[in-house]
Simulated scan of single mutants.
Amino acid sequence: MSTESNKAVARRLYEEVITNHRPELVDEIVAEDVVDETLGADAVALAREGFRQHVEGVWATVKDVKASVLDTVAEDDRVVVFWRIEGVQQGPLFGVPPTGRHFVGHSISTITFRDGKIVRYRVLPDRLGIQSQLLEPRA
């Protein structure tokens, strides 16, 4: 697959799967043997089902979640995605109990592809930036 088609699939992950709540697309764009590094030691064992659980966890934690792709950089089978997430915290997030507060965060993900499907997923979120928004004293 071309780098452009991989970038398009990466964009679909955030804009269609996450923002538009389309779990049926996971089977289409994620390989059965995906390694979702956000799952830690369980990543290999859980594979696609673990990835699906990760997505469902985002929906459960962030009400009205919107994931926007800001930029992508691709080479060979890898795409780096610079993206923004926003919504209202309704579940525990980065050690912060539910606050009902709106937040905006930025993340960088590295996604590896094989035959047009995601086979490895890694994300580096701005945890401190998100935590500070959720924990800042109310006026």
Score class of each variant (00 low, 15 high):
residue 1 M to V: 12
residue 3 T to E: 06
residue 4 E to V: 08
residue 5 S to Q: 15
residue 6 N to R: 04
residue 7 K to F: 00
residue 8 A to L: 10
residue 8 A to N: 08
residue 8 A to D: 08
residue 10 A to N: 04
residue 13 L to G: 04
residue 13 L to R: 02
residue 14 Y to R: 05
residue 15 E to T: 06
residue 15 E to M: 03
residue 17 V to A: 07
residue 19 T to L: 12
residue 20 N to H: 10
residue 20 N to F: 07
residue 21 H to K: 15
residue 23 P to V: 07
residue 24 E to F: 00
residue 24 E to D: 05
residue 24 E to M: 01
residue 31 A to P: 02
residue 33 D to E: 14
residue 33 D to V: 10
residue 33 D to Q: 14
residue 34 V to A: 05
residue 35 V to Y: 12
residue 36 D to Y: 05
residue 37 E to P: 11
residue 38 T to N: 04
residue 38 T to K: 09
residue 40 G to I: 00
residue 40 G to L: 03
residue 44 V to G: 14
residue 46 L to S: 14
residue 48 R to D: 02
residue 49 E to G: 14
residue 51 F to P: 04
residue 53 Q to W: 13
residue 53 Q to Y: 14
residue 53 Q to L: 14
residue 54 H to V: 12
residue 55 V to K: 03
residue 55 V to S: 06
residue 58 V to W: 15
residue 58 V to R: 08
residue 59 W to Y: 05
residue 62 V to D: 10
residue 62 V to T: 13
residue 63 K to H: 13
residue 65 V to Q: 13
residue 65 V to S: 13
residue 65 V to C: 11
residue 65 V to H: 14
residue 66 K to S: 04
residue 67 A to N: 07
residue 68 S to P: 09
residue 69 V to Y: 01
residue 70 L to Y: 10
residue 72 T to S: 05
residue 73 V to I: 12
residue 76 D to H: 15
residue 77 D to L: 06
residue 80 V to F: 07
residue 80 V to W: 04
residue 82 F to P: 11
residue 82 F to I: 11
residue 83 W to Q: 15
residue 83 W to S: 15
residue 84 R to C: 07
residue 84 R to A: 08
residue 84 R to D: 03
residue 85 I to A: 12
residue 86 E to V: 15
residue 86 E to Q: 15
residue 88 V to W: 14
residue 89 Q to A: 03
residue 89 Q to D: 06
residue 90 Q to L: 12
residue 92 P to I: 04
residue 93 L to N: 07
residue 94 F to H: 10
residue 95 G to P: 03
residue 96 V to S: 10
residue 97 P to I: 12
residue 99 T to W: 10
residue 100 G to R: 08
residue 101 R to L: 09
residue 104 V to Y: 04
residue 105 G to F: 02
residue 106 H to T: 08
residue 106 H to W: 04
residue 108 I to P: 03
residue 108 I to G: 01
residue 110 T to S: 07
residue 111 I to E: 00
residue 112 T to K: 06
residue 114 R to Q: 01
residue 115 D to Q: 08
residue 117 K to S: 00
residue 118 I to T: 00
residue 119 V to C: 02
residue 119 V to N: 02
residue 120 R to W: 01
residue 120 R to M: 00
residue 122 R to T: 08
residue 124 L to N: 13
residue 125 P to W: 02
residue 125 P to F: 00
residue 126 D to R: 07
residue 126 D to H: 06
residue 128 L to Y: 12
residue 128 L to F: 12
residue 130 I to S: 12
residue 130 I to N: 10
residue 130 I to M: 09
residue 131 Q to V: 11
residue 131 Q to T: 09
residue 132 S to G: 09
residue 137 P to N: 13
residue 137 P to E: 15
residue 138 R to P: 00
